[in-house]
């Protein structure tokens, strides 16, 4: 369970998050939707304690992220990139992460297998393609077999087979009772996997509810999104 409550944040005098509040519940996939720069990643970074909020709270299973002594056993998070130093092999990266949270080193190979990177375990992370980096990031998130998953743009850079795999994986995780929060700007993709949707625009949550509630009378989530955010459909014209 993730509870974000009235989180505000400013960066160089611009308010980038305005009283952001929403929940992500266990057993459900919550899609966090918004245009680029709307505040999705900032909200996730505040949730993970990477960035500090000016006010408000972000709790995972009742505690701030930094309050968990071995956080990887509670929350698995994957943000931009793999998080692995480019000179390190995939396995070496996962091993130090496992050590830091008291997890057995054998978990590294298990999660590599889970994301289909067993054959690349000894390859340096700097030589990974975008899709492989995402998989490695996800592997690190799964090390502690956490009940909560937080993923920023998880399908970015994946090939069609990878996208399909990710979709199945996320659905399965939610079916196992995990809380799954993922951000995306791909509405079609999100409409396929999300049970609940939170729409953020210019730092404010403009809609939240089940997929059906947020879509409302619009024919698709995409139509609802444009109606909610007032984004022109061809912003470059």
């Amino acid at each position: 369970m993730i509870v974000i409550d009235r989180v505000c944040k400013s960066k160089s005098r611009t308010q980038i998050l305005r009283e952001v509040s929403f929940e992500a519940r266990p057993g459900r996939v919550t899609g966090f939707l918004g245009p680029n720069g709307a505040g999705k990643t900032s909200t996730l970074r505040v949730l993970l304690g990477l960035d500090r909020a000016a006010s408000g709270t972000a709790l995972v299973n009742g505690r701030p992220y930094a309050g968990w002594p071995r956080p990887l056993t509670t929350v698995g998070a994957a943000l931009d990139g793999s998080g692995a130093h480019r000179a390190r092999s995939a396995r070496a990266h996962l091993r130090w992460v496992a050590t830091s949270n008291g997890l057995p080193l054998s978990r590294a190979d298990e999660v590599l297998d889970l994301v289909g990177l067993t054959g690349d375990a000894r390859k340096r992370a700097g030589k990974f393609s975008l899709g492989m980096s995402r998989r490695l990031g996800l592997a690190a998130a799964l090390l502690g077999d956490p009940p909560v998953l937080v993923l920023d743009e998880p399908v970015n850079g994946l090939d069609p087979a990878g996208i399909r795999w990710m979709r199945d994986f996320l659905r399965r995780s939610a079916a196992e009772g995990r809380t799954v929060l993922l951000s995306s700007h791909l509405m079609g993709e999100l409409a396929e996997i999300a049970d609940d949707v939170v729409v953020i625009d210019k730092g404010s949550v403009v809609a939240r509810g089940t997929l059906a509630e947020v879509t409302g009378e619009h024919s698709t989530l995409e139509d609802a999104f444009f109606a909610l955010t007032g984004e022109v459909e061809r912003p470059w014209s």
Partner: peptide, 26 residues
């Protein structure tokens, strides 16, 4: 410095520090 160098050309803003602080947030 290894925490702050970019992890790859695909995502120039990504650094090892993110992995480090998610593993050890204190």
């Amino acid at each position: 410095s290894s925490e702050y160098t970019s992890t790859g050309d695909d995502s120039p803003g990504a650094r090892q520090l993110t992995a480090t602080l998610t593993a050890v947030p204190h």
